[in-house]
């Protein structure tokens, strides 16, 4: 679809719809944001100094520990090991999961056969089968990739399917009235319409993938961020354990937030179908 993708190209000249990004999400005026940070980290610091528990370091110690881990290279090494399966897993979901979801949306037979399973899997705690994956595929990359795929696939498939099925019937009818073939209806109306929801699915899939890779690393595979967490916990270096956890939560949150912003830029509410 050569022309239908032109909205993805932000360099397209001409009038662009006004974006109402400001009305989205919590208010992010600087002062409030700062007080929000101060409040959160202040409470953390106070709780750590009080202390709540010997295993609860204050914020300041955690920051120092994080700096140490960044300096000695252990953090970078861990992230290389954690993010690799995550990226591979999401790419697999992006190709196979999205393709499958589109197939479900386009074919009644595929929908009939697979929808009940996908619905069940989406609500199911897929984490339960992670022990089995590691049992079968050991503690290497394959096991981690599979953990990511199993966690992320249901939501990716479901969103792609919903995107296709929610396509405005009126637009499909219009395309048929102007002699669009089945192929053209899919390429020029259905897929562009579903694109935003498919992207949302991939973002939610990535969120699940973060959970999956962390569980896989915590449960069995002594590598990556999970290993940093487990190791420092076992030798009672709690500030380093906290630093590792805080860093993965931050990385996940920032990545997902970035993708959400990107989604609003690529598919502003005004021009998205869904």
């Amino acid at each position: 679809m050569p022309r239908s993708s032109n909205r993805l190209n932000s360099k397209t000249p001409g009038r662009r719809p006004a974006r109402r990004l400001a009305s989205y999400g919590p208010d992010r005026t600087l002062a409030w944001q700062l007080s929000s940070f101060v409040l959160f980290f202040g409470m953390w610091e106070a709780a750590g100094r009080w202390p709540v528990s010997a295993a609860f370091p204050p914020f300041s110690q955690t920051v120092v520990a994080l700096a140490e881990m960044a300096a000695d290279g252990s953090l970078a090494q861990a992230y290389a090991s954690t993010l690799q399966p995550l990226v591979i897993g999401i790419v697999i979901c992006g190709i196979a999961g999205v393709g499958f979801g589109i197939g479900m949306g386009l074919s009644r037979a595929v929908e009939w056969f697979t929808l009940p399973v996908v619905i069940i899997l989406q609500a199911a705690p897929m984490a339960a089968i992670i022990p089995l994956i590691t049992y079968m595929y050991g503690i290497g990359l394959t096991a981690k990739v599979l953990a990511v795929v199993f966690m992320a696939a249901p939501v990716v498939v479901m969103n792609s399917y919903k995107g296709i099925r929610n396509t405005s019937p009126s637009l499909v009818e219009m395309c048929r009235a102007f002699l669009g073939t089945r192929r053209q209806v899919v390429a020029k109306v259905v897929l562009p319409y579903a694109a935003a929801l498919i992207f949302t699915g991939l973002r939610l899939g990535l969120a699940m993938g973060f959970i999956g890779v962390v569980i896989a690393e915590l449960l069995i595979t002594p590598t990556g961020i999970g290993d940093l967490i487990t190791y420092h916990s076992s030798v009672a270096e709690y500030s380093k354990m906290f630093a590792a956890i805080a860093s993965i939560v931050t990385v996940a949150a920032l990545t997902l937030y970035g993708l959400e912003r990107l989604e609003h830029v690529l598919f502003p509410a005004e021009i998205r179908g869904a």
């Binding site: 001409g14 562009p192 021009i271």
Partner: peptide, 11 residues
Amino acid sequence: FQDFALLPWAT
């Protein structure tokens, strides 16, 4: 069409 049926993503 009554509801216009314009592609929202197209100029």
